[in-house]
Amino acid sequence: MAAAAAAGAGPEMVRGQVFDVGPRYTNLSYIGEGAYGMVCSAYDNVNKVRVAIKKISPFEHQTYCQRTLREIKILLRFRHENIIGINDIIRAPTIEQMKDVYIVQDLMETDLYKLLKTQHLSNDHICYFLYQILRGLKYIHSANVLHRDLKPSNLLLNTTCDLKICDFGLARVADPDHDHTGFLTEYVATRWYRAPEIMLNSKGYTKSIDIWSVGCILAEMLSNRPIFPGKHYLDQLNHILGILGSPSQEDLNCIINLKARNYLLSLPHKNKVPWNRLFPNADSKALDLLDKMLTFNPHKRIEVEQALAHPYLEQYYDPSDEPIAEAPFKFDMELDDLPKEKLKELIFEETARFQPGYRS
């Protein structure tokens, strides 16, 4: 834990890192770190609560700039109880001085990944967590956004079992017609939660990839272990087919990539493993919904509104309290091709509203 900075004593240090967030945020305490930044909790002297502050230093890398800009653009436009918001952003007053960006968010005690390492969940908890994931996802999908990296560590939890989806750095506007060349190379989302079509096709992607990830998360809540822990690309596919069985001819016809289709045709026939054999203690309604989410063919996979209306979630289902976005989200430009200098300018502009004396 960093010592509390005395008023006016300059930035606090946390594990050798400068955290320049005073005077409003003090009493910093280390939480963890990701690929390009550290997260601390801090005391907000204005709202009198502890908050989470993520320090991001992305400006050396085009990919990190892209992810940072995506996350900020999306989260500043989203407003939903099951999606983490941005409360404040701290950065230098000029673009030349801006080396880091500090993002202030609600402090959540833990995440689903940490929880599943230590606790076996009751059916009631599984049901409530799944409902909140789908409630947040309904809003995301209504904005025409794909999260693309749903996994237990991106689901934040607090002691009252509130759940918030975080990390929109890989999110995209849904565009089933656009052929994202190089899709697989830039697709760094965790393999275990990846839909089979991501490994088999490169053309376009749809909201059904997020539903697949939610199915993987439900299976993990039922058993405290990942359902498809593939060691590499082909191993991942083999794990999936080992449980779902061989795809039907109709399902194979959806695979545009001939090499991928021929690979699947070359494999020995596998039978589907019954879900109640894998999860003998699970609620039968939970397994019915799991089956509809972990469907090989993305066109037959359940959609988020149908999933919310499934009998497993009937005690929570309330369409009048499951809000959607006001308007579909649009990125003005494809960020993939922009140089990091341009992305830095866009991050600077996007964060201006939090600067003292800002006038829109």
Rank of each mutant, 00 (worst) to 15 (best):
residue 4 A to D: 12
residue 4 A to Q: 09
residue 10 G to S: 10
residue 12 E to L: 10
residue 16 G to E: 12
residue 18 V to A: 02
residue 26 T to M: 06
residue 28 L to E: 03
residue 29 S to C: 13
residue 33 E to H: 04
residue 36 Y to S: 15
residue 37 G to Y: 10
residue 37 G to V: 14
residue 43 Y to E: 14
residue 45 N to A: 13
residue 46 V to A: 10
residue 46 V to K: 15
residue 51 V to F: 13
residue 52 A to P: 03
residue 53 I to P: 02
residue 54 K to F: 03
residue 56 I to L: 13
residue 66 Q to N: 06
residue 67 R to M: 14
residue 68 T to Q: 09
residue 69 L to Q: 14
residue 74 I to E: 06
residue 75 L to E: 01
residue 76 L to S: 11
residue 77 R to L: 15
residue 80 H to P: 00
residue 81 E to F: 05
residue 90 I to A: 00
residue 96 E to V: 13
residue 97 Q to M: 10
residue 98 M to D: 03
residue 99 K to C: 01
residue 106 D to F: 06
residue 113 Y to A: 13
residue 113 Y to R: 13
residue 114 K to D: 12
residue 115 L to K: 00
residue 116 L to F: 05
residue 117 K to A: 07
residue 118 T to S: 14
residue 119 Q to L: 14
residue 121 L to F: 12
residue 124 D to A: 14
residue 129 F to D: 05
residue 130 L to A: 06
residue 133 I to M: 12
residue 134 L to V: 10
residue 141 H to G: 02
residue 144 N to M: 08
residue 145 V to Y: 02
residue 156 L to H: 05
residue 156 L to T: 01
residue 161 C to V: 01
residue 163 L to A: 02
residue 176 P to V: 08
residue 181 T to D: 04
residue 182 G to E: 13
residue 183 F to Y: 15
residue 183 F to R: 07
residue 184 L to G: 10
residue 185 T to R: 09
residue 190 T to W: 10
residue 193 Y to V: 13
residue 197 E to G: 01
residue 201 N to T: 10
residue 202 S to T: 09
residue 203 K to C: 11
residue 206 T to A: 05
residue 206 T to Q: 06
residue 212 W to D: 06
residue 213 S to C: 15
residue 215 G to L: 11
residue 215 G to M: 06
residue 216 C to N: 02
residue 219 A to N: 06
residue 220 E to V: 13
residue 221 M to R: 12
residue 222 L to V: 06
residue 223 S to F: 11
residue 224 N to H: 11
residue 232 H to Y: 11
residue 234 L to Q: 14
residue 239 H to Q: 15
residue 240 I to M: 09
residue 241 L to A: 05
residue 246 S to F: 05
residue 252 L to W: 10
residue 255 I to V: 00
residue 255 I to R: 04
residue 266 S to Y: 07
residue 266 S to F: 07
residue 267 L to A: 04
residue 270 K to G: 03
residue 277 R to H: 07
residue 278 L to K: 07
residue 281 N to Q: 11
residue 285 K to R: 11
residue 286 A to E: 05
residue 287 L to Y: 08
residue 292 K to P: 02
residue 299 H to N: 14
residue 302 I to A: 03
residue 304 V to L: 09
residue 305 E to V: 14
residue 308 L to C: 09
residue 311 P to G: 06
residue 312 Y to P: 03
residue 314 E to G: 02
residue 317 Y to G: 08
residue 317 Y to L: 07
residue 318 D to F: 05
residue 320 S to T: 14
residue 320 S to F: 10
residue 322 E to W: 04
residue 322 E to K: 13
residue 324 I to F: 14
residue 325 A to R: 05
residue 328 P to K: 05
residue 331 F to A: 01
residue 341 E to Q: 11
residue 343 L to C: 07
residue 346 L to I: 05
residue 348 F to P: 05
residue 352 A to E: 10
residue 354 F to M: 12
residue 355 Q to N: 02
